[in-house]
C-alpha cells in the first residue's frame, strides 16, 4: 500500500524535497516507516530522537499502524510564539 510523507521546517532541506511516497506492507507501523525514511534520507536518520510524527493532523506513537493513503508528517520540535 502507498503512504505519503511530507517534511516540514529544515527537514525539507535535509531530505532535499518536501514530499515522498513509500510502498509499504499492510500493518506497517510509524516506527517501521521511520526506518524506511532514514534509509532513503540518511541526513534525517541522526535526528530521529527529536523527530515528531503526525498522521493526518494528530501525533502518533511508533507503534501506530498505518493505513493506505495516510499522510504522515515528519518534523523537528515545534517553536511557535
Amino acid at each position: 500500500m502507498i503512504v505519503n510523507v511530507q517534511f516540514w521546517s529544515f527537514f525539507k532541506e535535509l531530505a532535499g524535497c518536501d514530499r515522498s511516497s513509500f510502498n509499504v506492507s499492510p500493518g506497517t507501523t510509524v516506527g517501521q516507516l521511520q526506518d524506511l525514511i532514514a534509509a532513503r534520507f540518511p541526513k534525517l536518520s541522526g535526528l530521529r530522537g527529536s523527530t515528531l510524527v503526525a498522521v493526518g493532523v494528530d501525533y502518533q506513537p511508533a507503534h501506530h499502524v498505518l493505513s493506505e493513503n495516510d499522510l504522515i508528517s515528519i518534523f523537528p520540535p515545534v517553536q511557535g510564539g
Binding site: 515528531l52 508528517s73 515545534v78 517553536q79 511557535g80
Partner: peptide, 14 residues
C-alpha cells in the same frame, strides 16, 4: 496555553 502551544502546535521559526 502558550506553554502547550510551544510543545504541540506545528509552527517553526527561521
Amino acid at each position: 496555553l502558550i506553554d502547550e502551544m510551544k510543545r504541540v502546535v506545528p509552527i517553526w521559526k527561521r
